[in-house]
Write a protein that binds this DNA or RNA. Structure first.
Length: 294
DNA sequence: TTTGGTGT
């Protein structure tokens, strides 16, 4: 249920609050409790070592956290783009229920600009999922699948990137990495540098220059360090490139996005891990040239 | 099995 749809009930509450001011206190306490549950219980279940934090005062790096079934997302109403999306992958069971792909993408009523399916029509850009349909729907069910088709989870991607290189990455992360490590946290989003470019449709969605993908495999023993692997992939790829060409450090993603990832890591460990490029445990070479499906 | 487009 969308709480915004019930705003018209507010004026009717006023006379009641005047008679029983203690109700206002109760309402405030309930709101605080709900927000505390969001911050300390619900969001941590959908993110690893903290949600990405803006490191600049630039409003274009600010985002509102939207919680969905199976994934968490930081949305920028200024850019009409999600700035980060995080989800947890585990191996998909062979008998996981196959869910039909919805025909259309849906407007997300929680966003201010409420971008719709048709705002991307004729733009030359695909509606690119950040939280992927396949893995999320198999792991978390129909409700989660429908959430991945919300336009708040969508960003403009060139067809060759979306249908080729991004698809290869999405296949490898769940079929290879999640299987190998048992569980894998993914954080992904767009990168904007320099000049602001927007789509011509009414909602003027801003067009990213590149995209990042961060993989974090939690340590087997507590106290050990997680394994990290980071990519930056430009819009202009052909789609057939070897994936290892795009490996970067987490630090580089942080510089290009103005976000701080995994901020709960202890500072010394964070500095060491994030300066490094992905280690050998990913065995990326084995899959870097795996062909796409399309 | 996993990405999308168009037109109705």
């Amino acid at each position: 249920m969308n709480p915004l749809r019930n705003l018209h009930l507010l004026p009717r509450l006023w006379p009641m609050l005047r008679r029983h001011p203690q109700l206002a206190l109760l309402a405030v306490l309930l709101l605080l409790g709900w927000y505390a549950a969001e911050l300390y219980y619900l969001r941590p279940q959908l993110s690893y070592l903290g949600t990405p934090q803006a490191t600049t005062l630039h409003p274009a790096t600010w985002s509102r956290t939207l919680r969905n079934d199976g994934f968490l997302l930081g949305y920028s109403d200024l850019r009409s783009n999600p700035l980060w999306v995080s989800y947890k992958l585990t191996p998909v069971a062979k008998d996981a229920k196959r869910l039909k792909r919805p025909q259309r993408f849906k407007r997300d009523w929680r966003t201010l600009t409420m971008v719709g399916h048709d705002d991307y029509r004729g733009s030359g850009f695909d509606r690119g999922h950040l939280a992927p349909n396949y893995a999320i729907s198999r792991l978390y069910g129909r409700g989660a699948q429908l959430d991945t088709f919300l336009m708040s989870n969508i960003t403009p991607q060139r067809p060759k990137l979306n249908q080729k290189l991004w698809q290869r990455l999405e296949e490898i992360e769940v079929d290879v990495f999640a299987r190998r490590f048992g569980s894998l946290w993914v954080t992904t989003g767009p990168i904007f540098d320099g000049k602001i470019e927007r789509m011509k449709s009414a909602m003027r969605v801003e067009i990213p220059d590149a995209f990042y993908k961060l993989y974090a495999a939690p340590p087997k023993k507590t106290g050990d360090a997680p394994q990290l692997l980071a990519f930056i992939i430009p819009q202009g790829v052909k789609g057939t490139e070897a994936l290892d060409r795009f490996v970067v450090s987490v630090d580089e993603v942080e510089q290009r996005t103005g976000l701080d990832f995994f901020h709960i890591l202890d500072d010394q460990q964070e500095q060491q891990l994030e300066a490094k490029q992905g280690g050998s445990s990913w065995r990326l070479k084995e899959v870097a040239n795996r062909p796409g499906r399309y």
